[in-house]
Amino acid sequence: MSDVPPALAALIDDFTAVSTQDRLQLLLELGQELPELPERYADHPELLEPVPECQSPIFLVTEVEGQGEQARVRLFFSAPAEAPTTRGFAGILHEGLDGLTAAEVLDVPGDVANRLGLAEAISPLRLRGMAGMLGRVKRQVREKAG
């Protein structure tokens, strides 16, 4: 899995090593581990971008430290506790991409949800939400990394 960053490859390995039912459980656990927003965003939700492809309300913002391909990316998500699948998708992206370089984030293939084996467990509409999150993360990184 050399075309995905190591942290994301490890998540893919974890998901594909278990049954479909266990994948759902793993997804929910990652959602529970999603970090809370720092105050600078919690107090200013208008700074976050909505992801309308998601069935549940989710918002995200990236921070890019530095310029160019080696700039470091930080990811922040806001998803309600009553949207555990959406929180799980955000948890996957946070754990798999947070702290990577801009080049590494931009190189992540768009079929991450399929590689996780989630197509067997989650509706196509929900999978489109995860693709929407990744697309917005990449667009923000492109804009901010220069």
Rank of each mutant, 00 (worst) to 15 (best):
T101W: 02
A42R: 13
E65T: 13
T101H: 06
E53K: 10
R87I: 00
E53Y: 06
E69A: 15
L47T: 10
I58L: 13
V73A: 08
D98P: 10
A71K: 05
G117H: 01
P80E: 15
P35G: 05
A103I: 03
L37Y: 10
P38V: 03
T101P: 10
A83N: 01
S56H: 04
P50H: 07
E53R: 11
H94E: 04
A113C: 00
A42E: 10
G117Q: 09
Q67A: 12
P84W: 03
L47Y: 12
A79K: 02
F89E: 09
E120W: 01
A119P: 05
D98M: 02
A42D: 04
E69I: 05
Q70E: 15
E33M: 12
V112K: 05
E46Q: 11
L100R: 10
E49G: 01
H44I: 07
P109L: 08
T101G: 10
C54W: 04
V61F: 04
L47G: 05
D107N: 14
F76A: 12
T101V: 06
I92K: 07
V64K: 05
F89A: 01
S56Y: 01
A102E: 07
V51T: 13
G91I: 09
L48C: 05
G66R: 02
V73W: 11
A90F: 10
F89Q: 08
R87Y: 07
E39W: 05
F77Q: 04
Q67Y: 04
P45G: 06
P50Q: 06
H94W: 12
I92A: 08
F89R: 00
N114P: 03
G99L: 06
Q55P: 00
R40G: 02
Y41W: 15
P50G: 06
R74K: 14
L34C: 11
H44F: 12
L47E: 13
A121Q: 03
A103M: 04
L97H: 13
T62D: 10
Q32N: 13
A83K: 08
G88N: 03
C54D: 04
E65C: 01
Y41T: 12
E49V: 12
P38H: 09
N114I: 08
D98C: 09
E46C: 07
V112L: 03
G117K: 03
Q70W: 00
E53N: 08
L97S: 09
A71C: 09
L48W: 09
S56K: 02
P80D: 15
E120I: 00
L37D: 07
R115G: 04
G88E: 07
E69R: 07
Q55D: 08
N114K: 11
D98Q: 05
V108H: 00
P80G: 15
R74G: 07
P52F: 04
G96T: 07
A121P: 02
A79S: 13
L47Q: 12
D43G: 11
V64F: 05
E120Y: 01
D107E: 15
V51S: 09
A81H: 13
E104F: 05
A121L: 05
R87A: 14
Q55E: 14
G117T: 04
A103V: 03
R87N: 01
F59I: 00
V61I: 13
F77N: 00
L116M: 12
P57C: 09
H44V: 08
C54Q: 03
